[in-house]
Design a binder for these strands. Sequence first.
DNA 1: TGACATTAGGTGCATATACACGTATCTGAT
DNA 2: ATCAGATACGTGTATATGCACCTAATGTCA
Lengths: 151, 151
Amino acid sequence: MIQKTSRPLPALIAEVGRTCLCRRVQHASRHVGRRFDDAFRPVGINNWQFTMLMTLAAQASRTVNQIAADLGMDRTTTTKNLRPLERRGLIQIRVDDKDARVRRVSLTEAGEQLLAEALENWRVVNDGIAAALTPAQLEALRTALEVIARS
Amino acid sequence: MIQKTSRPLPALIAEVGRTCLCRRVQHASRHVGRRFDDAFRPVGINNWQFTMLMTLAAQASRTVNQIAADLGMDRTTTTKNLRPLERRGLIQIRVDDKDARVRRVSLTEAGEQLLAEALENWRVVNDGIAAALTPAQLEALRTALEVIARS
DNA sequence: TGACATTAGGTGCATATACACGTATCTGAT
DNA sequence: ATCAGATACGTGTATATGCACCTAATGTCA
């Protein structure tokens, strides 16, 4: 494998270090996740749960499959992550009227209220991260992440 | 909270949907993680383990704290993730000569060999993701992710 | 209408992630 | 020399993540 590239191993390793999108994206993801987790801790949710509640606020009565697609997440992961939110009464999961296979997830009153509280915390962190970048960098980042998530 | 912004809730929600870096970064991260996981599955590792082996290939005999910092990861997470790699004999963990608190992690022969195998798979996926972006977008993405990970 | 494919979703397992807390070791001031 | 604080790391617990596999409900076509 190595030989095929006609390059010495140290140079290859240096190249991977420079260009590896896996490392960069995951590293940034962990960092961003922790910052939002810190911000949402007083409200009692984590960054995923905030995003989850936001998607439900934007579009009510989503199915598990739709939510999984919204968040670019495995369906089974979505199912499991919904549990704590349901236990806390922030969302409600009901069987669809027309199709008994389908589960409809919607925000409860308590979920909306908690989301409203969390929004200010979100803004602080989101603005904080954005402030570290130039407007052009921020725009490019958003575009690139969108392309990656859809590819 | 909501009132403070002097905007109706639907508009706020739409704004969060457009601008939320948490959602975008995590979404892209899951997508990228899965693609690399798929690519590395024949070799028997996941994307984190590849990155881990790569950092050790670049700098031998790293401590747990150093590795955690390299990958922007919690120290305790690093400790636990090292276990499977050690069990499989891909890395070796030894107590430091000078300081008995410190553990030195290094690649084994088997680890190097597996890494060499994985490199071609890495290249295919990394090039594939990069190909979905323009060179300028790719450069901006790398820069922005670097800034975020260090901020 | 009955057989079969398709679709929506859940479970079991393994690893990933991180916080709170604990242990062992080292360092420096006295 | 000793002890208080700092440092390096591990453990317990809880949630996060996704694959392999499973069940149940629906759709389709003969």
